[in-house]
Design a protein around this nucleic acid. Sequence first.
RNA 1: GGCGAUGUAGCUCAGUCGGUUAGAGCAACGGCUUCAUAAGCCGUGGGUCGUUGGUUCGAGUCCAAUCAUCGCUACCA
Length: 687
Amino acid sequence: MNDRKLLVTAALPYANGHIHIGHLVEYIQTDIWVRFQKLRGKKCVFVCADDTHGTAIMIRARQEGRPETELIADMQAAHERDFKGFDVSFDHYGSTNSSENRELCNGIWAELRTAGLIAERDVEQLFDPVAGTFLADRFVKGTCPNCKSPDQYGDNCSKCGATYSPSELIDPVSTLSGAKPVTKSASHLFVELEQLHEFLDTWTQSGKHLQPEVANYLKGHFLCDPLRDWDVSRPSPYFGFEIPDSVGNFWYVWFDAPIGYIASTWQWCKANGEKLEDWWKSSSTEIHHFIGKDIAYFHTLFWPGVLKTAGYSLPEFVHIHGFLTVEGEKMSKSTGTQVQAHTYLKHLDPSFLRYFYASKLGAKLDDIDLNFTEFVNKVNSDLVGKVANLASRTARFIEATGLSVEYPHDGGLFAAGAAAGERIAQAYDQLDYSRATRLIMELADQANAYVENSAPWALKKDPTQQVRLQEVCTIVLNLFRQICVYLTPVLPKLSVQCGQLLQAPITHWDDSQTPVVNQAISKFEHLLQRIAPEKIQAMIEESKEVVPSPAAEVPSAAAPTSELPIDSGDALIQEPMAPTCTIDDFTKVDLRVARIIKAEEVPEAKKLVKLTVSLGGDNTRTVFAGIKAAYTLEQLQGRLVVIVANLQPRQMKFGLSEGMVTAAGPGGTEVFLLGVDSGAVPGQRVH
RNA sequence: GGCGAUGUAGCUCAGUCGGUUAGAGCAACGGCUUCAUAAGCCGUGGGUCGUUGGUUCGAGUCCAAUCAUCGCUACCA
């Protein structure tokens, strides 16, 4: 079994955004596992690539006025820089936009055809005549055909929950150009996954390839019903690979993305004189995918189905991890908790995040939380106070003499540490890094206690104890080195530094089993700097996206300052301009100033607040607004707002809503009610 | 509301097959030490294992119900 090779992949980052600390959970988790396997002497190859295709890339490139290839090249360079900065050490980092990937897609496609899994049928889709492109569901808005709610996306209604195709929308509008889309029929290609149902049932439920929670989830959500056909083609124009036997059609990005794993391996093979078959079509190679829980479906149903059909090896295991929360909440740009990799690197040592994640990660797919207080405490206490301190408090004593010629008696400490190695290795192998780090810290505690009891600083002052001093330091530095060996997968830099200090590089896990003796040592230099809490603060500040607070908005409107803030164009890109409307269209909408006379909690609702607004006199309305997370009841009580007064009342779960309160912002805590300058009174119309 | 999970010390978590008095780290408190980056060592306090019921000689662990929290989703007119 030991000659088995490992091929490891992490999910392919999409070329539409930068790497942030949430992504890094996965890359660090995977990198630790790979480094561990290599340190144990396993043949292990770690490949990844940028995921480059799809409508989003095409649109973005257009907005930036440059070719897609330029956009994806820039983004890939940024991704690789970020990964390097965090010591994520891919053996090869490719791109899904490669000739290898195209060739593999062709081959796999042919196999799917031969197996009779591909069906073709027409799909009515909306086409934007101005932008000259078919519109993905998210690029179309219109009125729900079921409940007549306006401003709904193309696939389902967020109001009544109806699902439909974009072509059924009433008065559809392209969010790209604002043009009225036309319905065009296009031929789409589907993979009939249901034909593989039995195989997928067996594979996912075998208990060997997936975490039990995942197998359970698939069984309850997908495998209990017939599997739906998968639409894997998109009509031109589309940024991707054209399907060879279906001119004008391109593979959907999710078809060619996982094939990118194989393509990247192939590129690695070419560069290293290896054969792809040995890695993807051989029982002597175990394939391990590491992914987040959001893309479980693709990797556990569609992907095994494709591999099986095309004659490639199936993954030995798909390791699925949870998400990162920061301070107990989802990452957010406005609070600065969605820290980008390059921002982190400006302020903090990547080793710290690697260690912190390791100390929190288990094999389950629970989310992990980054609490900054805990982060600072843990890193400073464990890495600096315990581990680095071992070298720091002994190395200088024996800079002149070096290590003892023979390893002295240490009361069995080194042997106990060596014996712990198998338990630590097992924890790493099972992805239980929190256990591994806990076990390692026990060793550090014992080593520090040994320093305390041996009191080298006292020995130093006694000229008759110089040999003993050298022995004690030899022991402590070897315990330190043993710990560094065990931490090598997590902290490769510390491992190298330790190798330099003792002039004995750490190259194998078994370096933990034998002490280094009779050896000069290098001059001691600090290995790690403690985290100053101010650095965290600075990092968060830099990560905050400028979002004007409601409080700041009012004075700036009343008293314009001489310095205008620089506003990014992100909001407009996020939600493109609606098509031109006439003044008649506008006057159909009756906007009125209203006063919130009562704001009530709706206990069962997560987002809704029940408002009673007055338009003056006896004229009051009940309005439900999705602003619970952004405002307290006290803040709402009494204030003036602008409402859409002639909106058709809507029956909601908690009552009838007779209007809409206007607000800007993406939602959640970022909702900003429109206010009016003083002087306006309820009932006045907005012109 | 649907689906998935999770509730163990102030915080983050471990707790194997049901078995003695439920553990660790961090934080807190007291003492010691001064080699070390305000690091280290020893000690102390702190838990009705969410709640209720059940199975059992015995339940943190198994079963049922219930409550709470988190994620996705629905409800943002």
